[in-house]
């Protein structure tokens, strides 16, 4: 709608009142895909962070003695940890793919315009990644349930 057409010429204060408040919905991080991608990014980020803290500590045991390290790593070779690893990879997969989407939104000149399409692509690639990792990990978990330490 033309705002400065000759017919609507009015004194300045009155004209100012007619200006619509800024449109809040439809900005990138408000509602819909933009917001949910951000929520998931935070949740996966926090989960990965706490795993990282534990992972640096468990790896540090390698400096105490081989037996101590092998003992801790053996506790990772349990079915429940195999399931945990699966969700860790799922979380990292989303955080990585959506992180690349954020980089494209911020640095690619038309990134923000295509953010919704890029979110769909992120989800599709995420599913492909999970589908690629799941069979091998399920095999590992099954072997652990059967009590094998090496296949």
């Amino acid at each position: 709608m033309p705002e400065n057409s000759a017919g609507t010429l009015a004194p300045q204060p009155a004209a100012k009142l007619k200006i619509k408040p800024p449109r809040l919905s439809g900005t990138l991080y408000r509602g819909r895909e933009g917001m949910w991608s951000w929520v998931l990014h935070r949740i996966t980020g926090v989960a990965i962070y706490f795993f990282l803290l534990v992972h640096i500590l468990d790896t540090s045991i390698v400096r105490i003695s081989p037996q101590a390290y092998n003992g801790v790593i053996d506790s990772y070779k349990q079915p429940i940890m195999g399931i945990g690893e699966f969700f860790l990879v799922v979380a990292i997969g989303y955080h990585a793919l959506n992180g690349l989407r954020i980089i494209l939104i911020d640095f690619w000149s038309v990134g923000a315009r295509h953010q919704r399409l890029m979110f769909v692509i992120v989800i599709l690639l995420w599913i492909v990644l999970i589908a690629g990792f799941a069979p091998e990990q399920i095999r590992t978990i099954v072997l652990e349930i059967q009590g094998h330490t090496s296949a």
């Binding site: 390698v62 081989p66 390290y69 790593i73 990772y76 990879v89 990792f133 990990q137």
Partner: peptide, 13 residues
């Protein structure tokens, strides 16, 4: 996690 025997291959050595 994936190559070789996955997490089962990890130990001190």
């Amino acid at each position: 996690l994936v190559a070789g025997n996955g997490v089962r291959a990890i130990d001190f050595a």
